[in-house]
Amino acid sequence: MSTGRLAGKTAIVTGAGSFEDGLGNGKATAILMAREGARVLLVDNRIEAAEVTAAAIAEEGGEAAVFEADVANEADVKALVADAVRRWGRIDILDNNVGIEAWGRIGEITDEQWDRVFRINVTGSMYTARHVIPVMAAEGGGSIINISSTASRKGGGLATYAASKGAIEAMTRALALDHGRENIRVNCIQPGAVYTPHAWAKGVRPDQDDAPMADWMREARKNAAPLGVEGTGWDIGYAALFLATDEARFITGVTLPVDGGLVL
């Protein structure tokens, strides 16, 4: 696609993979950015999942490539950034979607769970920012979009996850301050009860990774917010798309709830 609000720009979307039966935030974001003309590097630790997203983009006439990586591994992050530059010569947008949970109150989780959640959620986003920012600065700027969660404000039973998402919001503000003069905007999206494959997998009990979310739980999540509607990956994707465009040129350091009013 040669036209659109992101024409001529290159985006990296982590956690961009999803299978046919699900729509994750990363997949939706990548598709929307490609529709607006961006060339998108689809990063996931499951290459076959990223290829599903790539096929959806190609079917609409967009341009995308896949890259298998573990964002908690700095060598992988260096390689994916280098791949984007090699393919397209620049990086204008970074969308950090990778995240995992650990259920339990602070006295119930293990040190290993704590370390793993922070390694993937926080350190992974730090690594991508660390290696993308110099490329963006050299090209005159860019937009970084991090993903936190309303759990950072009301994360009962998810102490580790909530703490990691609060750290991402704090890091967002720090990066916005540190790199604003390089014309790099850094913002954060705070999803609420969004029905994605990630929520689907953990919907009935924390120990049932393959269990679909029960209808009663989806209904309870929907009704917990003032709007009374269930969010989808598209809702997060549209927010990310806006923050990536020049329409958001005067916005940085913001954490934007996309939650149907849940945090109210």
Results as ranks from 00 to 15, higher is better:
Ile91Thr: 00
Val77Met: 10
Met213Pro: 14
Leu42Met: 08
Val263Phe: 07
Met217Pro: 00
Glu247Ser: 13
Lys154Glu: 06
Gly15Pro: 08
Lys165Pro: 03
Gly231Cys: 04
Glu63Asn: 06
Ala16Gln: 02
Val81Lys: 01
Lys202Thr: 12
Pro257Tyr: 09
Ile31Phe: 02
Ala176Met: 07
Arg119Cys: 05
Ile31Cys: 09
Ala239Asp: 07
Arg35His: 00
Leu243Pro: 04
Gly22Ile: 05
Val40Leu: 05
Ser125Asp: 07
Ala28His: 03
Asp21Gln: 14
Arg181Ser: 13
Arg87Met: 06
Tyr195Met: 10
Glu182Cys: 11
Ala64Ser: 15
Pro206Phe: 03
Ile120Ala: 07
Glu101Gln: 13
Ala75Gln: 14
Arg116Lys: 15
Asn45His: 13
Met217Asn: 13
Gly155Ser: 10
Leu42Arg: 03
Ser143Leu: 10
Ala170Cys: 08
Val122Ser: 06
Ile47Gln: 12
Leu227Ser: 10
Ala163Asn: 08
Ile145Phe: 12
Ile12Arg: 04
Gly140Glu: 06
Cys188Tyr: 11
Ser125His: 09
Gly166Val: 12
Glu169Asp: 13
Thr29Glu: 00
Ala129Pro: 02
Phe67Met: 01
Gly89Ile: 01
Thr128Asn: 07
Thr232Pro: 10
Lys202Arg: 15
Met217Thr: 15
Trp103Gln: 08
Thr3Ala: 14
Val194Glu: 03
Val122Asn: 04
Asn73Ala: 11
Lys165Arg: 07
Glu74Leu: 13
Arg153Trp: 13
Asp207Leu: 11
Arg35Tyr: 00
Ala38Val: 05
Lys27Gly: 05
Gly253Tyr: 02
Gly155Phe: 10
Leu175Ala: 06
Glu108Met: 09
Thr123Asp: 15
Gly156Gln: 15
Ala170Ser: 14
Ala248Trp: 04
Ala167Ser: 12
Arg218Leu: 08
Gly26Glu: 02
Trp88Pro: 00
Gly253Asn: 02
Ile133Leu: 04
Asp92Phe: 01
